[in-house]
Amino acid sequence: NQASVVANQLIPINTALTLVMMRSEVVTPVGIPAEDIPRLVSMQVSRAVPLGTTLMPDMVKGYA
Rank of each mutant, 00 (worst) to 15 (best):
A64V: 14
M22I: 11
A3G: 14
A64C: 15
A48S: 13
V60L: 11
L17T: 00
R23Y: 09
I37Q: 08
V6M: 04
T54R: 03
V6C: 04
D58Y: 09
T53D: 10
T18V: 07
V45E: 01
A34Y: 06
V41L: 08
N1V: 15
Q44R: 07
G62R: 06
L10R: 07
A34G: 15
V45H: 00
Q2P: 15
V45D: 02
P33K: 07
A64R: 11
M56L: 14
M56G: 04
P29Q: 09
V6E: 01
S24H: 09
P12T: 11
Q2A: 15
T18D: 08
G31K: 00
K61M: 13
I13G: 12
S46A: 14
M43W: 08
Y63G: 05
L51S: 15
N1P: 15
M22E: 02
T15N: 04
R39K: 13
G52A: 07
A7F: 02
K61V: 14
G62H: 14
N14L: 09
V5C: 05
K61L: 10
Q44H: 09
N14Y: 10
P29R: 03
M59S: 09
A7W: 01
Q2I: 13
T53M: 12
V49R: 03
M43K: 11
D58R: 07
M43Q: 09
P12C: 06
S46H: 14
R47A: 14
L51F: 12
L19T: 13
T15D: 04
I37K: 07
P33R: 10
L55R: 00
V45Y: 00
N14V: 03
V41T: 07
E35W: 09
E25F: 04
V60Y: 00
I11Q: 01
A7V: 08
T18N: 05
I11E: 01
T28K: 04
V5P: 01
P12Q: 11
N14W: 07
S24R: 05
P12H: 06
V26R: 03
P29N: 06
T28L: 05
Y63K: 04
M59F: 08
P33V: 13
R23S: 12
M22R: 00
N1S: 14
E35C: 14
V5D: 00
M21Q: 04
N8I: 08
D36A: 09
T18S: 09
M56K: 13
Q9E: 11
P33F: 13
V41E: 04
D36Y: 10
R47V: 14
R23A: 10
M59A: 12
S4Q: 02
V45C: 04
M22G: 01
D58L: 07
I32Y: 01
N14S: 13
T53W: 11
G31M: 02
A7S: 15
L10E: 15
M59T: 07
A48E: 14
Y63N: 04
N1Y: 15
A34F: 07
I37A: 09
V45I: 06
V30T: 09
N8A: 12
R47D: 10
A64I: 12
R23N: 07
M22V: 09
L40D: 00
T54S: 04
V20R: 08
I13L: 11
V26H: 06
R39M: 12
Q9G: 06
V27Q: 11
N8Y: 04
A48R: 09
R23V: 10
N8R: 09
I37W: 03
P50Q: 14
L17C: 02
Y63S: 04
Q44V: 12
P29I: 07
Y63V: 04
M43R: 09
R47T: 12
L40K: 00
G62K: 08
P29C: 04
A48Y: 07
M22Q: 00
I32H: 00
P38W: 05
E35S: 11
V60S: 01
T18Q: 08
L55M: 13
V20D: 14
R47E: 15
P12N: 08
P57C: 13
M21R: 03
E25R: 04
I13P: 08
S24L: 06
A48M: 13
Q9F: 10
K61I: 09
P33Q: 08
Y63W: 13
R23C: 05
L55Y: 02
G31Y: 02
G62D: 12
T53R: 13
G62A: 10
V41D: 03
P50R: 07
V45R: 00
T15W: 06
K61D: 12
N14R: 05
T15L: 05
R23E: 05
P38E: 10
T15P: 02
A48I: 08
S24E: 11
I32V: 08
M59C: 04
P57S: 09
V6G: 01
M22H: 00
V49H: 02
Q2W: 12
A34Q: 07
M59H: 14
I37H: 03
V49D: 02
I32D: 00
N8P: 01
N14C: 11
S42I: 03
L40M: 12
N1F: 15
V27M: 08
G52R: 04
P57M: 09
E35G: 07
M21K: 03
G31F: 02
A7T: 15
T54A: 06
Q9Y: 10
L55G: 00
D36K: 08
V49Y: 02
V20I: 08
M59Q: 04
V6L: 14
M56A: 08
P50I: 09
Q44L: 11
V20M: 13
V60T: 02
M43V: 05
R47I: 15
P33C: 05
A16F: 05
P29S: 04
